[in-house]
């Protein structure tokens, strides 16, 4: 209660203080009065004493001294740069200054380290490892790769299991016309299908079959979730079937 009353009081006094403040300021500014602050008592006393001793002091101070003004006109300052040879001599030849400010292009976005800590690997090495394993799993087995790259077998197993090098497939994605999340396939723990479409057309056939299998499952799942979704998905399913049938023909 006290707080509220205080706030109310403050509100009222503030309004009263600022009543008609703009016109009051204008009026004050129009008067154009300059009230300089009074000097300290000691200074005041000193000034009075000086004026008593030398009555023409103020006149002397306010008068322009022509002699002093002309003196500055006679002064001329000139400077010279130090010789350039000296600067070159000072530079350390072991640590030359950069000539270009542009940074160099890095192949994988990092500076290749001179030595790699055991148990770790650079991005370049990782790419080599994965592509080697994918090309020939028997020659470059997990064991031999672990020895080659100074890694533990468990780490190599994880790398190979979870990361794969992409293979380029031209236009197959657009042609196949499937509409299902491919990672639902990867989701399934029983049959992980690596999306490696290098060996066409067998791999694509396998992939498309898997997509067909899981598209049914996906539509069933979405049918279960809600009515709106089910309508959409059923329509999509029909359209996808149309596409597939047209392709088969």
């Amino acid at each position: 209660m006290g707080n509220a009353a205080g706030a109310l009081g403050r509100f009222v006094t503030k309004k009263a203080r600022r009543f008609n403040v703009e016109s009051r300021t204008e009026r004050y500014l129009e008067k154009n009065v300059k009230n300089p602050a009074p000097k300290p008592a000691a200074t005041q006393r000193e000034i009075e004493q000086l004026q008593r001793e030398m009555p023409d002091l103020m006149q002397k101070i306010n008068k322009r001294n022509e002699e002093l003004l002309t003196r500055l006109k006679k002064v001329y300052v000139s400077s010279e740069d130090p010789p350039l040879d000296k600067i070159e001599a000072d530079a350390n030849p072991n640590r030359p200054l950069p000539l270009q400010r542009k940074t160099e292009y890095l192949e994988y976005g990092y500076v290749e380290p001179e030595s790699v800590t055991p148990g770790r690997l650079t991005l370049k090495q990782a790419l080599q490892l994965l592509s080697k394993y994918q090309l020939d799993k028997e020659k470059d087995s997990i064991k031999s790769l672990a020895l080659q790259y100074n890694l533990s077998e468990k780490d190599v197993g994880n790398l190979v299991d979870y990361f794969k090098v992409y293979t380029l497939v031209e236009n197959t994605v657009q042609q196949s016309g499937y509409d299902v999340n491919p990672y639902t396939i990867l989701n399934d723990p029983n049959d992980k299908i690596p999306i490696n479409l290098m060996n066409l057309p067998e791999e694509t056939k396998k992939f498309q079959a898997a997509v067909q299998k899981f598209s049914d499952a996906a539509t069933e799942r979405s049918l279960g979730t809600s009515e709106n979704n089910s309508k959409n998905s059923s329509q999509d399913k029909n359209s996808s079937q149309d596409k597939n049938s047209s392709k088969n023909n």
């Binding site: 890095l106 192949e107 994988y108 976005g109 990092y110 991005l123 790419l127 994965l130 299991d161 979870y162 990361f163 794969k164 090098v165 992409y166 994605v173 491919p182 990672y183 639902t184 990867l186 989701n187 992980k192 690596p194 999306i195």
Partner: peptide
Amino acid sequence: VGPIAIFPNCVLSWNVG
């Protein structure tokens, strides 16, 4: 297609669901 692991100037397939 699918989840990706992308680095500067290189990209890998990431086998997670």
